[in-house]
Amino acid sequence: MTASTPEPLLALSGVNTFYGQAQVHFDLSITVARGHIVCLLGGNASGKSTTMKIILGLVKPRSGDVTFDGASLIGLTTPQIVRRGIASVPEARRLFADMSVRENILMGAFVRNDRDAVAQDLERMLTLFPKLGQRLSQRAGSLSGGEQQMVAMARALMSRPRMIVMDEPTMGLSPLYVDRVLELIRTINQEGVSVFMVEQNASLALEIAHEAYVLQTGKIVLSGPARALKDDPRVRDAYLGGSEAA
């Protein structure tokens, strides 16, 4: 499909997913090249979030394979997948509301055992997200949505992942924070972390992504370099629920 880089970091191939009788994914294939930002676009109920859950092992596909760095993730539990180097920024952030901001960020390092390096990384997060410095001992649930998004991203980075998957990172944020979040995703990516993000906001996502896929009722209807898709009228069509074939 996209294929210009050598061996991809993450690859979904021929994934079919069902919720009971209802089929969610039809022969889904997606690849994320090393060091790239890949974005999955789609409207409501197109199967975007389920794709995230498949990668993280929260939902099991009925058939097809998911490989990370050449090894299959099928059959692994979510914690095992996280230990392979995938971190998650879940939809609606899902912070541990009653724990402090510091504790939330440190929870991201749960899979690590190198305490000194973890402490250093916490410092690094505070330079990356300077605002969180004053908030460290505050309850995470008391932060604003934008601040919570910062915590969620810092938390994900704390595991020193090779890849971060993000579910609608800009959802529900003020325009100011949307820009900030996109800029941060770019920064994170420049430090060598691959990013797979699910977004509804196509124009913003395509600004920073290298490649993009458009998902419609469980099928990939469009894919390619983000620059090419940005001007493709079919992206609009896909969103407005245009013809099935697109």
């Binding site: 996280v82 749960f110 938390r155």
Partner: peptide
Amino acid sequence: KLGWAVRAASQDRDAAMQMGVD
């Protein structure tokens, strides 16, 4: 560490799993 995992899991089980909590 296990205590943190207990607290995290009791606040958001799915998110705790995504942090690597078994």
